[in-house]
Nucleic acid binder design. Structure first.
Lengths: 142, 142
DNA sequence: TATTGTTATACTCTATAACTATA
DNA sequence: TATAGTTATAGAGTATAACAATA
């Protein structure tokens, strides 16, 4: 590496990737168990309340054109319905079916359990980690 | 959410995703500036010393069949060469060219600068973050 | 027989651009 | 004209299975 490499910074970057990678792998595995691809599962998480296609795309940080296919698949599985917006007929409101609500709750519940397990070793220091991550997110140059 | 949801755990999971997502976006942007796709850039990082196709695949947590295409692209760009292993003619050793070494150093240097900026707001507390992330990685159920 | 790397193939995810139907 | 959503298309990333060369 370059002479000015700070070993602490390098380790922090590596640790962050590792921990986030483990969290992501757990999420994807849970999604698969519930019959969902990772993108479909992320969409389900974003469907707690009815949203438009564009709002969901913004939440997923992707183009609306991609959401069409994701929602097509969830609709085929009977988890989501597209409902017309009475005020603007161009807009579609995405609403979970009863089965969709159950599936979403299973997904979120398992994800939460995994996160609790991931951070459990920290005990009360989880509060310290929360504050440090908040500072990174709020204060660092984006 | 479920009644037993711990808001602290939920926030930690969210913060971790956000911070890692920012780090990943910065890495991908740097890769693009250097003419590399994200997967190609990750492969370059793993090529500090000569490795076999299988070793690189293990480092990238993917199948060896995928590495073939990634290395094909890097070889076309003149950044890597496949060299025969004298001891086992099945094996190919991946070696960076001079241009590959320069490109890799640019990639790592910029990535390090970004990481330094990301964690800068913590000041001396970067040591605390390092210890917390180490504990998460080493002690949590994988 | 087992292993290294490759090829062929398929699926997922994503972006861009052109299209429609509304506004 | 502008906007919401869709379609068509292309590229990147990944996995599986079958294969050739070598061990």
């Amino acid at each position: 590496m370059s002479p000015e490499t700070d070993p602490l910074v390098a380790e922090l970057a590596h640790l962050l990737s590792q921990v986030a990678g483990r969290q992501g792998a757990q999420f994807n595995a849970t999604a698969a168990e519930l019959g969902l691809t990772p993108a479909q599962a992320l969409a389900m998480v974003g469907l707690e309340a009815p949203v438009t296609m564009r709002d969901l795309a913004a939440g997923l940080s992707c183009e609306p054109s991609n959401v069409t296919g994701i929602i097509d698949a969830l609709e085929r599985r009977g988890l989501v319905t597209r409902q017309p917006d009475p005020a603007d007929r161009r807009v579609k409101r995405l609403v979970l079916t009863e089965e969709g609500v159950r599936r979403r709750e299973a997904l979120c519940s398992r994800t939460h359990t995994q996160a609790a397990s991931l951070f459990a070793p920290l005990g009360g220091d989880r509060l310290v980690l929360r504050d440090l991550l908040r500072r990174v997110l709020l204060d660092s140059a984006s």
